[in-house]
Amino acid sequence: MAIIRCPKCAKSISDKHKQCPHCESNIAELNDEQVLQLQREQRIKKKQMFINHSFLALILFLGGFFCLYFLQPQEETLQWYAYTAAIGIGCIWYLVNRIILVTLKKKK
Rank of each mutant, 00 (worst) to 15 (best):
L62I: 14
A82R: 09
L36Y: 13
S25M: 13
E24V: 07
K45N: 10
E75G: 12
Q42S: 12
E76G: 12
G90W: 01
I100K: 03
A10H: 13
A57T: 02
T103D: 12
Q19V: 15
V96N: 02
Q37G: 08
N31T: 08
K106D: 11
I59H: 09
C23T: 01
F66G: 06
C67L: 15
D15W: 02
F55A: 07
E75M: 15
N26Q: 06
E76L: 14
T84N: 10
C9L: 08
Q74P: 05
C91L: 12
K106N: 14
Y83V: 09
Q37P: 04
K46F: 14
I87A: 01
S12E: 14
N52D: 11
P21G: 05
I44K: 14
A86Q: 06
V96S: 02
Y69W: 13
E76W: 14
K18E: 00
Q79G: 01
Q37L: 14
S14I: 00
F61V: 00
G90A: 02
I13V: 14
Y81A: 10
I87D: 01
L104H: 04
S14Q: 04
Y83I: 08
K16F: 03
E75C: 08
Y94N: 02
A85R: 06
E76Q: 15
W80M: 05
E24R: 08
F50K: 06
G88Y: 04
I100N: 02
E29R: 07
N97M: 04
Q48G: 03
N52P: 03
L62R: 06
M1P: 09
I59A: 14
L36P: 04
F70S: 02
A10V: 12
H22D: 06
Q79H: 11
F70R: 08
A85L: 11
H22Y: 13
C23R: 05
C6F: 00
W93P: 03
L95G: 05
S12H: 10
G63A: 10
K18N: 06
H17A: 07
C9K: 08
L30W: 13
F70N: 05
L62M: 08
T103S: 13
I99Y: 02
F66Y: 15
H22F: 14
C23I: 03
G88V: 09
Y83Q: 11
I51M: 08
F66D: 03
A85D: 09
I51C: 03
S54Q: 09
C20M: 07
R98Y: 06
N31W: 04
G63R: 09
L56D: 05
Q39A: 04
Y81E: 11
I87M: 11
A10G: 08
G88R: 08
R40N: 15
F70C: 02
P73E: 07
I4A: 01
S54M: 10
K46E: 15
K106P: 07
N31K: 07
Y83D: 10
L38V: 01
C6P: 03
A57E: 01
W80C: 06
